[in-house]
């Protein structure tokens, strides 16, 4: 029979090990350390077609992640997708005429929002809307266009 003290120490060590493992999973394995739950501001952008963009997809400029997609809604008046972007508070100098594109990471990767900076001296603030957007590339539409052009060339 173990003495009470040894048992207490071992139980303490067990619980500490379990909590350390949980901490490891949170900080090292998952994205908690990188998650921007901190302060930030919201921008909206309207796209004709968002492809398969998902909530929480990254928002990046020059390949650096500035924030993430917060919400995706459908606007019944303009039949467009209204995408809410959550940008980290540290990046508060995004020009007002910035261009928002939906790109795909890799050939089969997930889609993300890429911002191309404009030249305006004014900066986007909380609640502003990004005016210039480009929709996601839909593969079927591209192939259709390609075939259409090809057919036109052949008839000429």
């Amino acid at each position: 029979m173990q003495s009470t003290r040894t048992m207490e120490i071992l139980v303490g060590a067990f619980m500490a090990a379990g909590l350390v493992a949980l901490f490891f999973l949170a900080m090292r394995v998952s994205n908690l350390s990188a998650a921007s739950a901190g302060p930030g501001y919201s921008l909206t952008a309207r796209f004709d077609n968002i492809g398969s963009l998902k909530v929480r997809a990254p928002v990046s400029m020059a390949g650096v992640r500035l924030g993430r997609v917060d919400a995706i809604d459908f606007d019944q008046d303009s039949y467009q997708a209204s995408v809410t972007l959550r940008i980290d508070a540290a990046y508060d100098q995004i020009p007002a005429d910035t261009f928002a594109n939906i790109y795909t990471a890799g050939l089969l990767g997930e889609q993300y929002v890429a911002l191309d900076p404009g030249g305006s001296p004014d900066y986007l603030r909380d609640g502003d809307q990004i005016e210039h957007t480009q929709s996601a590339l839909v593969l079927e539409r591209m192939i259709g266009q390609f075939l259409f052009n090809k057919a036109q060339e052949d008839t000429e």
Partner: peptide, 8 residues
């Protein structure tokens, strides 16, 4: 705690 240990 054991599951976290296992996963880690």
């Amino acid at each position: 705690l054991l599951a976290a240990l296992f996963s880690a």
